[in-house]
């Protein structure tokens, strides 16, 4: 019985941690879905957003809600800068060129953020619960529970945004074909600013969750590495895929660490997540929910 309870505890904890990975993965999916660009800078954007939030709060001594609004402004400005100085110059270039550009953005944001706000670990406290429930001997982290609910809410909001709004449909049109979208009057520049803004805001939410859990620090940007197997598994274009992928990766890596790790010396959860994603890819190369790309000649 104790063993079963422990299994449930590990599974639940994995699922909730997976929801936190999903929050990061959502940012990647948004930009890929809307612009066909794999945004390597999503982790750095999350760090930059969280650093800005805490930095503004400390610098101005304001309530976190005011700092949040200012940070939203900063993320919109960042999206504008990315479009103006990076992507805007690379319209119709090969995807690999755009990808490389986002690597540049990553290093810039990592360095710029730390230069402005410093490298110390900063406490982010917006009143989220930080304890744990003990439900019949099963340990549940309250913050992770909140993160799970937040991830769920974000999926619903984003699904409505993409499917029911004019801008959402325009985003999808741009993703399918830049030139065709431009020919029917969709402003590529405007669309890219919108999508990078939305991804920045998702990064801000993810940064708040991870920052509340770990403190705001450089290592937050490395969480992006945890989102990659989630994307491989869930598919790069599916918002629900990011959530389901996150849950599978989160639960899989925790169960593997605890039940298999001991046999091989432990510390396997990082590479196990990638291995799990690769096994899925063997059967569904486009990921669980990704769109199968058919090139017609």
């Amino acid at each position: 019985m104790l063993d079963f309870l422990f299994f449930v505890e590990v599974l639940l904890s994995g699922l909730l941690t997976g929801a936190l990975y999903s929050l990061v993965a959502l940012g990647f999916v948004l930009i890929f879905k809307a612009s066909g660009v794999f945004n390597f800078a999503q982790g750095a954007m999350m760090l930059f957003a969280a650093l800005s939030l805490v930095g503004v709060q400390e610098m101005l001594g304001v309530h976190w809600t005011i700092a949040f609004i200012i940070t939203v402004g900063i993320m919109i400005a960042l999206a504008w800068c990315v479009e103006k100085f990076v992507l805007g110059k690379l319209v119709n270039q090969e995807p690999i060129i755009l990808f490389m550009a986002t690597i540049g953005v990553t290093f810039f944001l990592d360095g710029f953020g730390q230069t402005i706000w410093g490298s110390d670990i900063k406490i982010l406290d917006i009143g989220l619960p930080n304890g744990a429930f003990d439900v019949g001997g099963v340990f549940i982290d309250q913050l992770e529970l909140v993160a799970g609910l937040t991830a769920g809410a974000l999926v619903i909001i984003l699904a409505i945004f993409f499917n029911k709004t004019k801008i959402g449909r325009a985003l999808r049109a741009v993703a399918d074909d830049h030139q065709a979208a431009m020919s029917v009057g969709i402003s590529l520049r405007y669309i890219w600013i919108v999508v990078w803004t939305v991804a920045g805001l998702v990064g801000l939410v993810a940064g708040i969750m991870w920052g509340s859990k770990l403190g705001v620090q450089f290592s937050l940007s490395l969480i992006a590495l945890k989102a990659l197997p989630v994307l491989m598994l869930g598919g790069f274009t599916s918002i629900p895929g990011a959530i389901v992928g996150g849950l599978i990766i989160g639960a899989g890596e925790k169960l593997a660490e605890i039940y298999v790790g001991d046999l091989v010396g432990g510390a396997i959860e990082n590479w196990f997540a990638y291995m799990l994603a690769m096994v899925f890819l063997l059967f569904r190369p486009q990921g669980l929910f990704g769109e199968k790309i058919i090139e017609r000649v």
């Binding site: 904890s13 620090q217 510390a267």
Partner: peptide, 30 residues
């Protein structure tokens, strides 16, 4: 703990179960 040590949930679930009397930590950074 997997480098750089930001995700430790599995470790602490195991420790909770093992109920050690003392914990000695060789950590650094985050």
């Amino acid at each position: 703990v997997v480098f750089p040590g930001i995700e430790q949930k599995a470790t602490w679930l195991q420790i909770r179960r093992a109920k050690p009397d003392y914990i000695v930590m060789w950590g650094w950074g985050a």
